[in-house]
Design a protein around this nucleic acid. Structure first.
Lengths: 332, 332
DNA sequence: CTGAAAGCGCTTACAG
DNA sequence: CTGAAAGCGCTTACAG
């Protein structure tokens, strides 16, 4: 910047004003500065400005997902990006892999880079350490799952009702032996969806069978075999409720490979590509992933804009989309 | 930091050394500093350090994709993240939407935040403006597509050979009227895949029919109708080569809805979830998206580690995976 | 409207 | 092994 000032024959103050667009500067000088910027190939150092600026704002956001490569989270990611982009804010993104320690490392790394805010899909770990940062001005929002240990803005899908609706739908089609395939209940979304499953059974006076509730350890790796195993049981389920997108995909593979796609019903939580092209079409509870991201972004920016009220919770509906697989009647 | 120094009763230098792990500091003082850090809730300001540090390294990377929410790119994203994570480097990510202007804005925003390197899926726009930044020490790598206007490291799938293989496979199954559905040739991957399509036709002495080469304007919105339209033509194609994942999904929908899934063959470029569960299974040319990301990360870090040789190009194979849809013989 | 000077939170020779 | 001091690239009162 001082090279630019020298070349343009003005002071640092003037260059700074031109570069950051502060009003009071003569058009002629501005042009001279612009020209010098071009010639030198000057890149503004926004982080240095952040250090000095009164408000200390970095126009930078941190996003922490379970896995950036899961299509559900990457859609949330895009939702946030669209909101941030409109404000000239650029976003970090990282994957916790559901590991609280990894999540903590990411948070520390992002806060050390002085992000203005953090949007996180929380692991089951503790988040009280963020309280100090929030008190110091950090904007914070949770998405997909609520924080367990602290109060903060969050936006969620209506997991319980969505799951209840899915299972009630299967019951309405005559099923009584309905398997639940989902993550362990430590994950909030999984426990909510399990609660929805249970509520629907209760409503219909169907006793719960522990054998029908399964938690694949590694989703992509185990859900396939777990489903195949369930189908081979003495009294197999007549319907499956798969409560997570990767699990749905694996269960569908198992169903199709075992030749049961037309006699075992399935409803999945979260939509999957091609669900509509498959035979039968896959009935799902659809989440508005982009919407989750956009709302999380909006909650966050409202904090940065000065909102200082109590924590807000936005719950987006998760409607059932019937396509065939959920309307198969029980085969026995 | 000065509060920590005051509380611990040491100098700023000592706090800095403890916090950044520089060796020569007495264990007793280190403990006192650590304690003060805990009490105060001190967060290290890594960006301030970057400003002062001799090497000026920010341990920050910028990633620019066409769209972070496309599963192909989000897998590339994760590949880069895994490499970066191992080095304590955190990554920005953004979407260009194939718009050179938007890409330029993102690059400017990231360079203003002083990323150490940039990994970009380039739009068709000009990238010569990056030359100065590279000369000034920026590490740069392109992924999925090579840069058109400058020399730089890049990692690609073998698009041409993959496409040629796919089309040759269809020809080997007796097809002569094979449609190409893909992005406009301004996008490098699309033009390479089209070149592969043409090479396979030439090899088999099949004249090219312009009517069979189609470019949906908006992939998700138009590919479905374009496919349906092709199927309704007087002499419809007997096989489709869909050269992009979103287009493959839409074409499959159209094929299934029109009741042609068993009599029109299809091979897609890039794998899609459930491709295996569908009936018939979807034959595809598979890309190693994670591998593309990992290799791009490695090329980038080798530059940051001091490699200063000529630009390198890594080409990953894109093998054909046969699952049924590509082995359907021509129906007429 | 413009410039000289102080200072954001750090790191790093330099002296002790 | 420790501390005082200079300075990274900026912004911002303050004076003119």
């Amino acid at each position: 910047m001082k090279d630019v000032a020298a070349l343009a024959g003005v002071s640092l103050s003037t260059v700074s004003r031109v570069v950051s667009g502060s009003p009071p500067v003569a058009p002629e000088l501005a042009v001279r500065v612009q020209r010098a910027v071009e010639i030198i190939g000057y890149r503004h150092n926004h982080t240095a400005g952040t250090l000095r600026r009164a408000d200390g704002v970095s126009r930078t956001l941190g996003l922490i997902f379970e896995d950036v490569s899961n299509p559900f989270f990457s859609a949330v990611h895009r939702g946030v990006e669209d909101i941030a982009r409109a404000r000239g804010v650029v976003t970090f993104a990282g994957s916790s892999d559901e590991d609280p320690e990894r999540e903590r490392e990411l948070i520390d790394a992002l806060l050390a880079r002085r992000v203005d805010g953090l949007i996180v899909v929380p692991t089951a770990g503790d988040h009280t350490h963020l309280l100090r940062d929030v008190a110091a001005g950090l904007a914070l929002a949770f998405v997909d799952r609520p924080p367990t240990s602290i109060e903060a803005d969050c936006v969620l899908s209506d997991n319980r009702r969505g799951a209840e609706q899915a299972v009630a739908h299967l019951i309405a089609h005559g099923h009584r032996r309905i398997a639940f395939l989902g993550d362990r209940p430590e994950v909030h979304t999984a426990s909510e969806r399990l609660a929805g499953y249970r509520a629907a059974l209760r409503q219909a006076d169907i006793p719960e069978e522990p054998d029908l509730i399964r938690h694949p350890r590694h989703r992509a790796a185990d859900a396939y075999h777990l489903t195949a195993e369930l189908l081979r049981a003495d009294t197999p389920p007549t319907a499956l409720f798969t409560s997570q997108n990767l699990i749905t995909i694996q269960a569908l593979r198992a169903l199709h490979h075992a030749g049961h796609k037309h006699d075992i019903a399935l409803v999945g939580f979260d939509d999957v590509p091609l669900a509509e092209a498959i035979e039968p079409g896959v009935t799902v509870v659809a989440q508005d992933a982009f919407g989750l991201g956009r709302h999380a972004g909006e909650l966050l920016f409202s904090r940065l804009d000065g909102y200082d009220g109590p924590a807000r919770r936005i719950v987006l509906p998760a409607p059932l989309i019937t396509r065939g697989s959920g309307e198969i009647p029980p085969s026995q």
